[in-house]
Simulated assay, not measured.
Amino acid sequence: MTTPDTQSCTACQDLERGREQAAAVRDRSKVTDFHVLIARHRARHPAADEAVNVMREQGPRT
């Protein structure tokens, strides 16, 4: 999920695009990998608090 603070972050966009592509081919292992990579990236990101809270509220995607 892109938030206003992460829209301009190319790494966030690349990770989200990778997650979407993995989901499109139903590769759940890669989707999980991207969830971990996104969480790690956003933990060091200026918008980390907001992004992590949003991800926790939404829970896992199916």
Rank of each mutant, 00 (worst) to 15 (best):
C12Q: 02
E20C: 07
V25P: 01
A43E: 06
R44Y: 12
Q58R: 08
T3H: 01
H45F: 10
Q7I: 10
E20F: 11
H41G: 09
A11N: 01
D5E: 12
H45C: 08
K30M: 08
R40F: 08
R40L: 11
P60E: 09
R56I: 12
G18L: 03
T10E: 01
T6R: 03
V36D: 00
Q13A: 13
D5K: 05
T62F: 04
E16R: 00
P60S: 14
R28L: 10
R40M: 09
H35W: 06
N53L: 07
V54T: 08
T6P: 00
D5G: 10
E50P: 14
A22K: 03
Q21W: 10
R44L: 07
A48F: 05
F34Y: 04
G18K: 02
R40H: 09
A11H: 03
I38D: 03
Q7P: 01
T6V: 02
V36I: 04
Q13G: 15
R19N: 02
T62I: 08
V31Q: 00
R26A: 09
S8T: 14
N53Q: 09
N53C: 09
C12P: 02
E20M: 07
D5Y: 09
D33E: 14
H41D: 08
S29W: 15
D14N: 08
D33V: 15
A23I: 05
T6F: 00
D49K: 10
A39N: 03
D27E: 10
L37W: 10
P60W: 15
D49E: 12
H35V: 14
D33M: 10
C9I: 04
A43K: 02
P4G: 09
D27Y: 13
G18A: 09
H45W: 07
F34L: 02
V25Y: 02
T2K: 05
G59M: 03
A22I: 10
M55D: 11
R19C: 02
R40Q: 10
A22W: 00
G18W: 06
R17G: 11
D5C: 12
R56Q: 03
E16I: 13
A24E: 01
R44V: 11
R42C: 11
E16V: 13
P60R: 12
A11W: 05
Q21N: 06
T62M: 00
A23F: 07
A43M: 05
K30Q: 09
D33R: 07
R56H: 06
P4Y: 13
A23E: 03
D33C: 12
R26H: 06
R61S: 04
R28A: 13
S8E: 06
S29H: 14
Q13S: 13
I38M: 02
V52Y: 03
K30G: 04
E50H: 15
L15V: 12
E50D: 12
